[in-house]
């Protein structure tokens, strides 16, 4: 029989290892910033087409993630997608005339909202909306446009 002290030490080590594993999962594996995102401020933007954008997709400025997509809704009156962006509170100096576009990271990567800073002296505040937007590039549309142009050219040439 192992004595009591070594049993207690072993259990202590086990609990410490378990907690260390949980700590590693929380700190090293996940984005711990998820907790601070709850208290950011919200902007909205209207797009003709959002492509494959999803809730929780990143919002970036200059390539740096400054927030996430909080909600996506469809406005039945304007036939536009209304995307709500939640921006982290420390990024509070986004000019009023900034523009939002939907980009794809890589050829097959996920889609994200990229903000381009404008030149205005006033800054976006909570519940403001971004008026300059550019929709997602839909691959099928590009291809069909390209093919259409090709045929027109060929027909015009002959």
């Amino acid at each position: 029989m192992i004595n009591r002290r070594s049993i207690e030490v072993a259990v202590g080590l086990f609990i410490a290892a378990g907690l260390a594993a949980l700590f590693m999962l929380a700190m090293k594996v996940s984005n711990i910033s998820a907790f601070t995102e709850g208290n950011g401020y919200q902007l909205s933007a209207r797009f003709e087409n959002i492509g494959g954008l999803k809730v929780r997709s990143p919002v970036t400025m200059g390539g740096v993630r400054i927030g996430r997509v909080a909600a996506i809704e469809f406005d039945q009156n304007a036939y536009q997608a209304v995307v709500t962006l939640r921006i982290n509170p420390q990024y509070d100096r986004i000019p009023k005339d900034s523009s939002a576009s939907i980009y794809t990271s890589g050829l097959l990567g996920e889609q994200y909202v990229g903000l381009e800073p404008g030149a205005d002296d006033t800054y976006m505040r909570d519940q403001d909306s971004i008026s300059l937007t550019q929709s997602a590039l839909v691959m099928e549309r590009l291809i069909s446009k390209f093919l259409f142009n090709q045929t027109v050219k060929e027909n015009g040439g002959s």
Binding site: L22, L25, K28, V29, S30, N31, I32
Partner: peptide, 19 residues
């Protein structure tokens, strides 16, 4: 490896749900 992991694993959604 680590940055893709951290960007896509959520503390509340994934880790807490796993626990």
């Amino acid at each position: 490896f680590w940055s893709q992991m951290q960007a896509n694993v959520d503390l509340r959604e994934d880790i807490v749900n796993g626990v």
